[in-house]
Design a protein around this nucleic acid. Structure first.
Lengths: 207, 207
DNA sequence: TGTACATCAGTGAACGCGCGTTCACTGATGTAC
DNA sequence: TGTACATCAGTGAACGCGCGTTCACTGATGTAC
């Protein structure tokens, strides 16, 4: 009888195999991309048997989805951290973008995965449940800053979507051209400062 | 001997068959998407023989590329028109976006194609030669308006990319939710007016 | 504890399928004279 | 103009391939007593 604490041997093996398929998927997708990858590629890379795959996933897309979900969750966590660290309006604007860029700098495996699967990633991101949470986080934050007078009133739902869309652009651009990062960060800071900061809060503005 | 004016019979047939493959591709891609489509689907839809396909294209992707190119060219032409019609800064900002939306409203076939292939379309757009021309058009226009004092100085290259990226977002969003269009157009007008218009040019601005 | 049986995930050979691509043949079009 | 030949795109059956998926069998793990 399995009276030990924790998962049974069977459960442990299942978790291990699932992880093996996920890691194999990461490697395969990083190397040849979701489009070119096949279930057989993932199975080969995992070292397990063909038949075992279907005990865990229905398709390569199912594997990809789980991987994307974990990446988006990482990003969301980083954004939460950066948000708590930033107090004033302008630093809030830029801190989130910087946090995203750091993630790709400090996690080259994920960066490679994203570089090789830019479009699949973007598509998955927009359908992803965690990404919706990330969007909701941002809307809430924007509404809060409007309430406290830091930001002008605005269409926060569309604003949040726009910020995230440009964030995805930023990450993807900077995967290929990291030198562009500072210039693009400056641009985004300007763009959203002009759109959001209450009148008179801009450095050297009129009046 | 072929001493008639215009293309020979052979050339005319070739043109006709090429067109048949392109139109078949459009229908197939609209219905099942680039990813799911096969060369055989396109051939079946064209009514021509399997072997003939390879006299004209190397792959389904080659067909898709030509189709995307023609769509981007349509958009570019519309943007050129709208640009000539708009004289002042604010109307320039919004006229381009409106022109894009009209295209999808007045050309349901292309709209269906884009809806079914949003990501392939976005990806192709960013690699497309005509799209680069469209980007160059916009940079030139922005620089001109800065020179004439209508717009503030800014990073026009990144600004143009941003405008186009948000334009692609706009088109794709409004394909699924046309009711959103006015709200999103308003948002974009505000966003870029704040970023671009010379100080004092905003209605009811400070001073 | 030990034994007998039940459960269940792992295995990999095998299946059928649709794919991209080829190529010998056909017949319409173009050319030479 | 007419005739004989050359050119060249169209044809579709056929090929080999790798794919997703299945399933009878195995053997480790779990359970009952």
């Amino acid at each position: 009888m399995n009276d030990s604490v924790g998962p049974s041997l069977r459960e442990a093996k299942k978790r291990e195999n699932r992880k093996a398929f996920l890691e194999a998927g990461r490697r395969v997708f990083s190397e040849i991309g979701l489009g070119a990858a096949t279930v057989r590629d993932i199975v080969r890379e995992s070292g397990l048997a063909q038949g075992s795959f279907y005990n865990y996933f229905d398709s390569k897309e199912a594997v990809f989805e789980v991987i994307v979900d974990s990446v988006v969750e990482q990003i969301r966590a980083r954004l939460r951290e950066s948000r708590e660290a930033a107090i004033d309006g302008p630093s809030f604007l830029i801190a989130g973008y910087q946090a995203c860029m750091e993630l790709t700098a400090f996690d080259p495996d994920t960066a490679a995965l994203m570089r090789r699967n830019q479009n699949a990633f973007r598509a998955a991101f927009y359908q992803n449940q965690t990404a919706s949470g990330l969007l909701a986080d941002l809307v809430e934050e924007l509404d809060g800053k409007v309430a406290s007078g830091v930001f002008r009133p605005h269409d926060s739902a569309v604003m949040a979507e726009t910020m995230i869309s440009l964030g995805v652009d930023l990450i993807i651009t900077c995967l290929d051209a990291p030198d562009e990062a500072p210039r693009r960060l400056d641009f985004l800071q300007d763009l959203f400062a002009n759109a959001l900061l209450a009148d008179g809060a801009l450095d050297g503005a009129c009046c």
